[in-house]
Amino acid sequence: MTTPTQAVRSDRAAPVAHAGVDWLFLVSVLAIAGALVRAIYFTPFEALQGAAQKIFYLHLPAALAAFLAFGIVALSSIGYLWLKDPRLDRAAESSAEVGVVFTTVVLTTGPIWAKPIWGTYWTWDMRLTLTLFLWFIYVGYIVLRGAIDDRAMRARYSAVLGILGALLIPFIHLSVYLFRTMHPRPIVIKPSAPSLPPEMLTTLVISFVAFMLFYLALVRQRYRLATERELLEQEEGR
């Protein structure tokens, strides 16, 4: 078992200020730029939806990155409750915040795509509503962390919320099968082969890889912030 002081001490050698650009961040931004250039200029328009369908290359990778982020929150939280290792708490905290950012992108790009296709920005469809609930749960998770001063209590309570929130993810994925919804069923993540033309599938895969790298880069930065904050708290004698 690692105490908070032990876990942070190993990071003490890290420089106080990271003035330079993180290499992983730079690689991920270049990958996203490449993916977007391919999506905009080298991927054909979908015949029925027109240009609006290209929102897909932002919307789906953001959704998958958000689900991955909250899955990692749950796994790190389970690990924290078991091992009481504060590094796992920091990993959960970091992944939750980045997950909220990706979910915000899903909840903004989705309605912008829905307007020209469904004729409305928002409908209380099960997939949309559950995704909004997921966003609220992890916003609540961040607020909860800010409201508790005691480090161990904060980590324990937020771990429980982090695990419970992630239980919503399978329901969100299955909601299009379990309920009558306007949201289309998965065309890539499904038991049979993806039903996308090869050019579109390649663009989607490139975009997915780029956004996964971006997720990792953001979590790495956020984890460093959490570590530096903990060091500051120790130095201030809190």
Partner: peptide
């Protein structure tokens, strides 16, 4: 084919804006 480029541009603009704001906020907090 429908002409709805405005929505597609708006979505890209909004998404990139959200990612940029978060990146700036991370750097500012650090």
């Amino acid at each position: 084919m429908p002409h709805n480029e405005g929505y597609y541009h708006a979505a890209y603009f909004v998404a990139i804006g959200i990612y940029m704001l978060y990146t700036i906020s991370l750097r500012a907090r650090r």
